[in-house]
């Protein structure tokens, strides 16, 4: 009995012949390397561009370099709106829209730590994160697994939010 090749596959003898030639190519290309000076060129370019990332800022309590002041309040409002769009989709019961307060000048750093809302790997990779101060209904905290007492669900919460450049909330610090 002969083995019939599957539709689209090469017959075994042809496949074996092809694999023999590909083995030659694999062996011959195994040691190929880019030019030695390429790494040095990249490192030079990197030196010109490097700046502290978000995690360093989170740990140190300082604001990241580019703030909303660079782009103006409309950009801040847009980013914040995008960030909250996800929340509002998940929690349609919330009728009170979040209110941006003083986006261009976030509140002074508080003692409370930031609570990560995304995996740390995701936060670590964000270079253009921005902090905005905002007020929103306490009930929204439940969407991120934070405890909310039912009797206080309707109260407003003031918080600093760390937003990614695309508006995604990355971390949260409750002010009051």
């Amino acid at each position: 009995m002969t083995l019939k090749p599957l539709s689209g596959e090469l017959p075994p003898n042809e496949a074996a012949a092809l694999d023999r030639e590909l083995d030659q190519l694999r062996a011959a290309t195994a040691d190929l390397q880019p030019q030695a000076d390429l790494e040095a060129r990249l490192l030079k370019q990197w030196q010109k561009r490097s700046r502290p990332g978000v995690l360093g800022w989170l740990a140190g309590g300082k604001r990241p370099a580019p703030g909303f002041g660079q782009f103006g309040v409309p950009a801040a409002a847009l980013a914040l709106s995008l960030g909250f769009a996800g929340w509002m989709t998940v929690a349609p019961l919330i009728s009170q829209a979040p209110r941006l307060t003083n986006a261009a000048a976030p509140a002074e750093p508080a003692d409370a730590p930031f609570i990560a809302l995304q995996p740390m790997e995701r936060i670590a990779l964000e270079r253009d994160a921005t902090v905005v101060s905002t007020t929103f209904p306490r009930a929204l905290l439940a969407n991120y697994g934070l405890p909310v007492s039912p009797e206080r669900a309707g109260e407003a919460v003031r918080a600093d939010m760390l937003l990614a450049s695309n508006g995604q909330p990355l971390a949260l610090r409750i002010i009051e």
């Binding site: 990249l42 490192l43 990197w46 030196q47 990332g53 978000v54 670590a124 270079r127």
Partner: peptide, 18 residues
């Protein structure tokens, strides 16, 4: 390495490149 790269660590870029 990528996190360190984002934090400005040049050695991380070198390691990723290697």
């Amino acid at each position: 390495l990528l996190r360190r790269l984002r934090e400005g660590d040049m050695a991380a870029l070198s390691a990723l490149y290697t």
